[in-house]
Write a protein that binds this DNA or RNA. Structure first.
Lengths: 118, 118
DNA sequence: TATATATATACGCGATTAGTGATAACGGGC
DNA sequence: GCCCGTTATCACTAATCGCGTATATATATA
């Protein structure tokens, strides 16, 4: 799953946030990222390329401009992996809970919340 | 958000999968990862350390052994970021849809599915 | 065709990171 | 106290990655 590598970079995550709001000109993205991270145009262009090649974003030409858009489908692999991890985790907590209810507390001395939240 | 960096490594993701099923001895993890990735014990130990320090996993000592467990709470930041991105994306598609329904198709020539699937 | 604008690529560098081998630390059993 | 099993750390190296500078490509316009 190469997807997580793509999301590992804060600049790329920020770009995805920008694109989530709608199509955006490459120059627009460059401008925003430059303001926020101080990167140059080529640096941003390369990030856009990574997003393109990994499927997280698509681009279409409009004259000399390039309009980038988020590809929601690409998020699925990440979402699915996380959901599966969460599912297994919660399922395991459910099993623990059941065991505790039955009074067989030999495994664990604490009982975390089912959803893992504080 | 440093969390995505942690998840960027395939070995660490695999370890999290192992831990999602329940507490596991460090040696167990080492054994599995060695079989699947061919890493040495120190390498796996380092990954476990990264997971520990980033909050994705916790460890408790049991004699000379160390039992590692997933920390479901640490997944939240990632889950939340993804959910927010998805929300914005879907919301934007909803807006597009509304506009199309009103017959003002000046912006877009296609209509992707609302959930970004298929 | 020449020029300007918009975007992408090439290349080299510095920093980070993950890996290995050796070793240290910690706890248990004799 | 000594040895053994388990896990963590240290020192070092190789590979990766992202950056900036410089340059190329492409389109519109004069």
């Amino acid at each position: 799953m190469e997807a997580f590598d793509v999301l590992g970079d804060p600049v790329r995550r920020r770009i995805l946030e920008l694109l989530a709001a709608g199509e955006r000109r490459a120059g627009d993205v460059v401008e925003t990222i430059q303001a926020e991270f101080g990167l140059t145009q080529p640096a941003v262009s390369r990030h856009l390329r990574v997003l393109r090649e990994s499927g997280f974003a698509g681009a279409r030409a409009e004259g000399t401009r390039r309009l980038y858009a988020l590809n929601g489908q690409a998020l699925e692999s990440v979402e699915d992996w996380l959901a599966e991890l969460r599912r297994q985790w919660n399922q395991r907590l459910d099993a623990l809970e059941t065991e505790l209810t039955r009074g067989r507390q030999r495994n664990c001395n604490q009982r975390p919340r089912r959803d893992g939240r504080g």
